[in-house]
């Protein structure tokens, strides 16, 4: 069971919780379970194809999951997963 830290932008989607415990042995499984439990989160962080949006970052114990094994990164008891949509945009 991993703890998923919920930033303020996603808190309403999980009923106001700052963190939720989610089962899963990899980052991908945890995110899938989170989005199954809280579909409003999925609406914000997944593309229409169900993939994690390119501009949504995920950290495992403070490390960028894309620099680990991305969605295959193993997680378990005591690990903290943080989802953080990027702040991005631009004139073009």
């Amino acid at each position: 069971m991993s703890t998923v830290k919920i930033p303020p932008v996603l808190r309403q989607a999980v009923g106001g919780e700052r963190a939720v415990d989610v089962a899963g042995e990899t980052v991908g499984e945890v995110l899938t379970a989170l989005c199954d439990q809280h579909p409003a989160v999925g609406a914000q962080i997944l593309t229409p194809d169900g993939e994690l949006h390119k501009y949504v970052n995920v950290y495992v114990n403070g490390e960028d999951a894309r620099l680990l094994q991305w969605t295959d990164t193993p997680v378990g008891d005591g690990d903290t997963v943080m989802i953080l949509p990027a702040m991005a945009g631009g004139a073009r």
Binding site: P7, P8, Y55, N57, Y59, D64, M82, L84, A86, M87, A88, G89, G90, A91, R92
Partner: peptide, 19 residues
């Protein structure tokens, strides 16, 4: 982090720490 005239992407670590 993008550092261009046409795009911004806030440094994710700074974003996380400041939020």
């Amino acid at each position: 982090a993008e550092g261009t005239p046409f795009m911004y992407v806030m440094d994710p670590r700074e974003q996380m720490e400041l939020m």
